[in-house]
Design a protein around this nucleic acid. Structure first.
Lengths: 141, 141
DNA sequence: CTGGATATTTCATGTTGTCAAGTAAATGGG
DNA sequence: CCCATTTACTTGACAACATGAAATATCCAG
């Protein structure tokens, strides 16, 4: 029995979420590309702009293998946006940290990531609060 | 002007949408992998299960270059899930169509894509309707 | 019929992703 | 202290996905 008790509203919501996901990606990639970054690079640079992070931790955040992070950091480093620093507390660890230029790029990137802010302008403050609560409960479930 | 009037609720909603997107992807990839498919292959197979589709049209749906679709269809075809058919109306066009096995796989895939349905179960019918309307207005904006 | 547009493929190339193997450093039980 | 194990990272091999340019076949308008 493939689809039993399929509430039509649920189906609609599922489709809308698919649309949101699709739009999110499109606009994220576009914003990244406008700074000559791929989506993955933009994600990592944004992460590092909060604080220098060990390679392993980056892999966990990205939910990928650590060996993958090596390549992404390599490419960011070769462009002078990121550097590897030793961790004074553990010589095995390398902390990836943004350079000055990397921080500036991350800042400009954040500014161009208005994709979710602008569409939300159409909702009132009360509606945004309702949306927040519904999304929160959906994610908890 | 980097950050003018950044409503904290808006920021929260943006973050939650990021979470939704991340979770959607994770679960989509997982569902696809459980049928030995990549995310892109699952997306295409699902698309084709609705109707046979020209290569070019698939590229438009995926928002990628047509040359990319060639490879994805190649891999699906080599596994017997999809076949290329001539378009009787235009001999330049190739229609990608699911095989019988491809249709069955698409059907099973759909069943395992409950990722968005299950979390929504935590919301009442009225709440789902509100969520639908808010998402709809957000996407229109 | 010819010239330009369209649909697909092929090839070269780059990024992201996996896995297995290797190096270096930390850690804990004897 | 010493050795075995674990942990962090890199390397290398390989596959999928993505782009762009060039080739081929077909369509279509003039």
């Amino acid at each position: 029995m493939p689809s039993r008790r399929v509430d039509p509203v649920t189906v609609e919501v599922v489709e809308l979420i698919g649309d949101v996901v699709s739009r999110y990606h499109m606009e994220y990639e576009h914003a990244a590309a406008s700074h000559q970054l791929t989506g993955a690079q933009a994600k990592v640079l944004n992460l590092l702009s909060l604080e220098p992070t060990p390679m392993r931790r980056i892999a966990q955040k990205l939910r990928c293998e650590p060996s993958n992070v090596t390549g992404i950091i390599d490419r960011l480093e070769s462009r002078g946006l990121v550097e590897r620093r030793p961790d004074p507390a553990d010589r095995r660890v390398k902390l990836a940290a943004p350079t000055e230029e990397g921080l500036q790029t991350a800042e400009r990137l954040r500014e161009s990531l208005d994709f979710a802010r602008e569409p939300l302008a159409g909702l009132s403050a009360a509606e945004r609060a309702v949306l927040r609560d519904l999304l929160k409960r959906m994610l908890e479930g």
